[in-house]
Design a protein around this nucleic acid. Sequence first.
DNA 1: CAAAATAACGCATATATTTGCATGGATTCA
DNA 2: TGAATCCATGCAAATATATGCGTTATTTTG
Lengths: 249, 249
Amino acid sequence: MLKEERQQTILSEVDLHNRILITDIAEALDVSIDTIRRDVKELDAEKKLRKVHGGAISMGFMTNSARNTNIYKLADKAAIAAKAVGMLRDGAVIFLDGGTTCMELARIIPENLNLTCFTISLPVAMELSHKANINVISIGGQISKEAQIAIGANAIHHISEIRFDYSFIGTGYVDATYGLTEFDWDIVQIKKAVIKASKKTVLLSISEKLNSQHRYKTCDINSINTMITELKPDDNLLKAFKNHDIKIL
Amino acid sequence: MLKEERQQTILSEVDLHNRILITDIAEALDVSIDTIRRDVKELDAEKKLRKVHGGAISMGFMTNSARNTNIYKLADKAAIAAKAVGMLRDGAVIFLDGGTTCMELARIIPENLNLTCFTISLPVAMELSHKANINVISIGGQISKEAQIAIGANAIHHISEIRFDYSFIGTGYVDATYGLTEFDWDIVQIKKAVIKASKKTVLLSISEKLNSQHRYKTCDINSINTMITELKPDDNLLKAFKNHDIKIL
DNA sequence: CAAAATAACGCATATATTTGCATGGATTCA
DNA sequence: TGAATCCATGCAAATATATGCGTTATTTTG
């Protein structure tokens, strides 16, 4: 049997069953395990599959279409995410909200960090699922079509049964006196539940959202323990928040 | 024997068998291995075949199974999805499994259909969330990194509290006598729960998976109410399944 | 037609690739 | 943590490849 032929067979098996065991294939093709190992290594280098301990898995499952390229103020959001990632410690149990800023945070969480991440966001869950050392738990529920997050009583109930070390949340609007507000009532309910379930709540928000408000209130500004914007902590825009007991990064 | 004549023979052999060994051809045509080697080199330069170590491989064979961008056997899976979508009725409460075939079904569900769709798959949930008239409910749980689906006790418990009109599931392996089997124990548990929670279970499987089996058993073939493959219902390959009480589409 | 030019072929030799095995280190799982 | 499994690496044997060269067709050309 030709090497090429063998590799094609391996690819077919991976495509068909999504995953294979090195030993299974070696036995099926009647060649040594080493050979299959080398084949899989090559195919992995060619990005035709992904080698994992003991076998290989299909790329098709891993390719995420969730990575949107045109995110508003991505640079600012990346700066916020960079600050936020510095708060993460091995072994922490955290919650990640939906939204592009949290998505950015999810994206840059280091591979080697051991975390348990809960999230209501489908894209965030997909992004995190690519990281080897992160235990991802999605909170189920009715899916909000706009935000692609789980909402509703079920999700809220679930959240109420957990205790997060840190929760990283976004908000639609934030104001020093009126607190965090939203356009959407369902989302407010979810965020209330998250804040209640968190030892520490971290708000991620670009400065553009500062001093804005809307109809439904999530919480007072005091309910937030840490606020992260893309600005330097001593920026004038943040002065109004300094009076409160909030750590500003 | 003319050079041209020889090369034609090589090409037809490659087309017929998808692959050849240099040594085989040399022996068959009774010329030196060097000559065949040179011939193959030329034909490779003309892109009439692909030279590999030890032999040559048909171009068709290559492009057929080594696509890295597309989903394996997408055409077949689309055919299956098309049959499955015909079973959907307004107002139904259904379950959609993970996997590329179910993903394909999710993709082609019509916009105007009113459905309540439960799913454990993050990509499927995201796909469905784009459809206006579909109420998407994700079942939460620990996320399996390979399959990007929720697994574990929590997900299973959730599923047990629902009653689906129809569940559309895939399987790793299926055999008329051994039933549905999987590579992964966790996934078997989820599927068992789904089948138990469904009034009718519909298996989506490309014919390539027929008559294959693996370590862990999901259910007997009788637990399936409807089986959909890309084949015509009267295909010979499906004969073994006709003895059972299964509707074949 | 015949000589020259060109191409094809096979052989020998040096180089490269593939493969299985052995060893020691890493990873996983109970 | 310890046993089992998996992985990386080096090595040697087998096999495949490239190349030069001499011999033998085949074609060209005067």
